[in-house]
Every structure is written in structure tokens, then in C-alpha cells.
Amino acid sequence: MSLIKELDYGTPIRLSEDEVTLTIDGVGVSVPAGTSVMAAAMSMGTKIPKLCATDMLEPFGSCRMCLVEIEGRRGTPASCTTPAENGMIVRTQSDKLARLRKGVMELYISDHPLDCLTCSANGDCELQDMAGVVGLRDVRYGKEVANHFETDSPLALPVDTSNPYFQYDPAKCIVCNRCVRACEEVQGTFALTIEGRGFDSRVSAAGVSFLDSDCVSCGACVQACPTATLMEKTVVEHGQPEHSTVTTCAYCGVGCSFKAEMQGDKVVRMVPYKGGQANEGHSCVKGRFAWGYATHKDRITKPMIRETITDPWREVSWEEAINRAASEFKRIQNDYGREAVGAITS
């Protein structure tokens, strides 16, 4: 078993009767009209670097990592917000693009802690991955001015642990807006916003703690976060999962698909599965977070019997319990007739 990683096309799948054909890095590709250049590239296996884009959300174009060159167009447009067009000739790699991306990444990292080894997202962090992809080796900026991550910095904000299931660590936020957009577009609750402007801007649950806010703990923001800013407390505590299995939620009749992400036989987190046709990657507080009952101390794991309901229960073997049930049902049918027993299923 291994951890199931899902492809991220960067922008939502578009359905269209019409196809457009373009050339990306010298290779022709046809995609449904309305598809972004980023998703078109991904459909042929080319991952354009990105931070603010994910296929659960509409393109936003803020992180400036996914810049590409398009023949006949000025500058370096963002591939997430640029729709693919017939005859387009796109380059996703060039010296100029590499320099731009590395420069942007350097700015991000200048206001981000370098504690990757001890970070809860270590190994599952898009910022870490992208820093690797662009080959960032040195950060020149940020040493002279206040930042958001040093605890004694005037800009530092406390970690919000008010929600029972996940935490918000503003020090790690890159203000990509994915959480805010997930709350709006995926969940539709509009509980999150960006407070402040420019360098001061940070994600906020409208100025109060997550627990006191309109947040309904669906987990869409945690799912969308590319860093350790919004993180399940179980992952903070236990570390990254190492294998996963796709299964179906045990709560309501929507029947959401989840990946049960595990360490050994211990569930670390339940993550909504994008391939699930009922939920398409979304979840609610129950399926996403409220699974701890499965190993609650109240679980009864041994068969038990008793003569009368006022007797204490006695733990017995499976065989004894099954035989008691069967012999009682047979005795009752013998004494009172065939119709005197029945069953209720759930």
C-alpha cells in the first residue's frame, strides 16, 4: 500500500463540445475549449510550477509562479488564468521564466520560516516542492525588516488552536487565498477573509477565532492550504501518513468518498477523495474530522451475555454468545411460535 496522490490540474476541468489545439513546449495537445494553459500542460504531463492554483478552485492568478511565454503575446502571462486557444504556441520553460520564478520564490521564502525538517507539512508541502523545483539556494531579502515568523517580531501572530480539529499558524501563510476561496467556492460559507493590505495581509476568520467564527469546520480550507498554515491537529501530533485506502463515509446519505490516510493501522486523517462521484473532493465536519469514535474507550469489543437486564454483563467467547442467541431464539419459536422473533437492521 502507498499513499494515494491525486493529480492536480491546477484549474477546474472544463467540459465542452469544442476542442482547441495548441502547442506546448513543441508538443501538440487538444483540450476542451475553456481549459487553461496550465491544465492543458498538465493533461500532457507537464507540471507548471504553481502555488495559488488548484483544480478545486477557479483560477486566481496571484502567486506569479505559473508564468509562461506565449508567442505573439507580450510579457509572461499566468498560465492558470490564460485559456488555451487554437494555434497558441506556449513555452513553459526558458531561462527568463526560470529566473522570474526563482525570484518570486525567493520573495515568498524571505517571509517564511526555514523549519522544514520539524514542520508538520514536511514531505507534503507545495511551497517546499516549488522551492525545490525552482532551485532556490539563497535568500537575500528580509533580513533587515520585520517578518511574520519570528516569535519576537512585531508582526508575529499567535497560532489559533481554537478549532478542535485543525490549527491556523499565520507564520506559515503565503497569502495565496486558497483557503478563502475554498470557503467561498467549495463550501459556500464565506467565513474567511484576508485582513490587512500588502505585506501586512493575513488570512482571518473575520477577526475572531476560528471556533467563534462562522466556520463550519468542513475542512475545505485545510485541504486547499499548500503549506502547514492550516493543518489537521492529528498530523501535527502524529506526523505524515504513510499509506491510504479509499472508502466511503459512515454518516449521512450523501455517501462521500474519503481516503483514510494511515500510519500502520492507525488513522491519521480522513481526506475527501476527488475521484468520489458523490462529493468530488469536498467534505463536512463529520466525515472529515469526527471519526475518533471508532477507537473510543467506550467501544465494546468482547461478546457479552446476561440472564436478565438487571444482571451485570458477562464477557464470554464468540461461540458462547452466538450459541446463547441461537438457542434462545429457537426456544422462543418453540414456546411461542415461529412469528415470535424478528430482526431490525440499520
Binding site: T248, W291, A294, K302, I305, T308, W313, R324, E328
Partner: peptide, 15 residues
């Protein structure tokens, strides 16, 4: 179960 005579332990969805 307060009114029961035999208890057979069940499984959660994870099991």
C-alpha cells in the same frame, strides 16, 4: 442494549 441479553460487538466503518 440496556434492555438486551446478548451483546455482539460490531465494527465501525473503518473495520
Amino acid at each position: 442494549a440496556k434492555y438486551a441479553h446478548v451483546f455482539l460487538p460490531g465494527s465501525s466503518f473503518l473495520e
